[in-house]
């Protein structure tokens, strides 16, 4: 993917009635970069994601995709630029995995149309790329949480967009699947050149991506503001974690033979005000 799609937020703000969720966010997401938005539960990450996707309209400021205000773009036009991986996918009807993935082609189908053979080929090829072809005919309501999340990520790939937005992609996953999903994310960025915007409440995920040698920008959503703090190594300091999360931590570095230096945050206690 070489299309240079830029995403810009200009003084973006959103409030539900009188309750301001975030405000004055000005930010440029560069093509091919990865933005990790950290913040505790309820800090407004999901609302920010929804605003990027055009689901919520900003109450202040604007969001531009390639210089165009998303207020003037149709859901289909936005969906050809931004794909979304949801946090909790509620399953209501048993569809086959293939049928769910085909939905990634919605933005490319006619108003009264269905996806065609070309779309099916894209789905099958993308599944094969991740060695998950065996899932194609499985009932997706019977997939495990980790498999579901992988399917959601593959659906975003099938959507064929330069930018992918993920909201807590590893919430509710077990130990191994969490890593599987993170590894898949690394693959998207490294091999497919996707621009990624990921909201997470686990600061260690930013370190995981950095440990894999990716270029990550970290922003903390805190008290309605997005504080951009640079790379994970610069951003995830004990001062910042104390300020934004209210948790006292220590940052551990460890050298492994295989991967070189890796970093992790160890929480110690919640910050006790002196």
């Amino acid at each position: 993917m070489v299309t240079m799609t830029s995403l810009t937020l200009n003084n973006a703000g959103f409030s539900y009635g009188d309750t301001s969720i975030f405000k004055n966010i000005t930010l440029e997401v560069h093509p091919g970069s990865t933005l990790c938005i950290l913040g505790p539960n309820g800090s407004g990450k999901t609302t920010l994601m929804d605003a990027l996707l055009g689901i919520h309209r900003l109450t202040h400021g604007s969001i531009y995709i390639n210089g165009k205000d998303i207020r003037h773009l149709s859901p289909g036009q936005i969906a050809r630029v931004l794909a979304f991986v949801p946090q909790n996918h509620a399953k209501h009807f048993s569809f086959s995995v293939r049928d769910v993935l085909l939905m990634g082609r919605s933005a490319y189908t006619h108003t009264f149309g269905s996806p065609g053979p070309k779309d099916l080929r894209i789905v099958d090829a993308t599944l094969a790329q991740f060695n998950l072809s065996h899932l194609a005919h499985r009932d997706y309501t019977r997939l495990s949480g980790g498999e579901t999340q992988l399917v959601m990520i593959i659906r975003a790939l099938v959507q064929d967009t330069p930018i992918i937005v993920m909201d807590e992609p590893t919430a509710h996953l077990d130990f191994k699947h969490e890593i599987t999903v993170l590894e898949t994310i690394v693959r998207l960025i490294r091999n497919q050149g996707k621009t990624l915007i990921m909201a997470t409440h686990f600061p260690n995920h930013a370190f995981f991506l950095e440990n894999q040698g990716l270029d990550i920008e970290v922003g903390f959503l805190h008290r309605e503001q997005l504080h951009m703090e640079g790379s994970p190594s610069d951003a995830l300091t004990w001062e910042n974690l104390r300020r934004y999360y209210g948790v006292d931590t220590c940052i551990m570095e460890y050298n492994t033979q295989k991967t070189g230096k890796i970093k992790q945050i160890f929480p110690i206690s919640t910050t006790k005000e002196a």
Partner: peptide, 24 residues
Amino acid sequence: IAVKWKLNVLAMGDREAQSLGLNV
């Protein structure tokens, strides 16, 4: 009949259907 496939997408929920490109 004309929107039968779109009903699949709508079954994903309003938020997802819109992010997939449907004018829900």
